[in-house]
């Protein structure tokens, strides 16, 4: 038991270490440049304490429970034994269908870790406030999580087939640009942001383990070169799904308005 608490304490200390530069900058500018008192200071300080404690608990819990298990699973799912393949290169890239569990795992782990991602929760809360409730936090988070899920499974497919990363990313960019043209203006900035916020505390370690497992088990792939790129996929696809989510809600709102109009005319 004391081992558990000790490890929690050291996790708390390292969180403080990580947050110190941010607090230093905030305090420095507040005291030296702005020179104004912060309203509800005790409440804000309490908030900071809660954030520190929360992050420490969160990270400690992930390290204790989910990361070890998730990483072992990523290794096992990508092992040639499990896939039922012999280890020579041609059989691997021709049998990309044999990796169906890997793609499913990539999809599921991408979706589920994104739903639990604290920075995405923060952005969703803010977007809900700013849009006066028009953007539902849960809807936004599901849209982003679907984007990450598709991104990671496509990224896994890319590692298996060994195609160059930049072809996928550049095609994705073109798609994002075309979609920007048609998406409602109010969603564009938020959609672009959601690419960057999705991949942090929970997603990155698990996804990195998956990339490493895949690229070290497939002959001809180098973990140092081919293991990268999954995060890039995970930051690209949420832009499309979030714009898509906005387009869908706009479309269904219009349809509802039209339907209401029609019933008005009838009555």
């Amino acid at each position: 038991m004391s081992g558990y608490l000790l490890s929690l304490w050291s996790s708390f200390l390292s969180t403080i270490d990580d947050v110190m530069p941010i607090i230093g900058i905030l305090v420095g500018f507040q005291v030296l440049v702005l020179r104004k008192t912060i309203p509800h200071l005790p409440q804000v300080l309490l908030g900071f304490l809660l954030v520190l404690l929360g992050l420490a608990f969160f990270l400690e819990g992930l390290e204790r429970a989910l990361f070890p298990l998730g990483k072992i699973m990523a290794e096992q799912l990508t092992a040639p034994d499990f896939l039922g393949l012999t280890g020579d290169e041609t059989s691997m890239s021709e049998h990309w269908q044999a990796f169906v569990w890997v793609y499913l795992f990539a999809f599921a782990i991408g979706f589920s870790t994104t739903v639990a991602e604290p920075s995405l929760i923060a952005v969703a809360i803010k977007a809900n406030q700013v849009s006066a409730g028009a953007i539902k936090p849960w809807g936004l988070r599901i849209a982003v999580a679907l984007g990450v899920a598709v991104g990671i499974s496509l990224g896994a497919f890319r590692i298996v087939t060994g195609t160059p990363l930049h072809y996928y990313i550049i095609t994705g960019y073109v798609f994002v640009l075309i979609q920007t043209w048609f998406a409602p203006r109010t969603i564009i900035a938020l959609a672009y942001d959601s690419g960057g916020v999705t991949t942090s505390t929970v997603t990155v370690p698990l996804v990195a383990a998956l990339g490493l497992g895949l690229s070290s088990n497939i002959p001809g792939r180098n973990p140092l070169l081919d293991g990268f790129g999954l995060i890039a996929f995970a930051s690209l696809f949420p832009m499309m799904t979030v714009m898509g989510y906005a387009q869908l809600s706009e479309w269904s709102a219009k349809r509802a308005a039209k339907a209401a109009e029609r019933t008005d005319q009838l009555s």
Binding site: Q43, V44, L45, L46, G47, F48, L49, L50, V51, L52, L53, G54, L55, F58, P118, I121, A122, I125
Partner: peptide, 8 residues
């Protein structure tokens, strides 16, 4: 964390 976010 979520509480601290809103407060701080």
């Amino acid at each position: 964390f979520v509480q601290g976010l809103k407060l701080g």
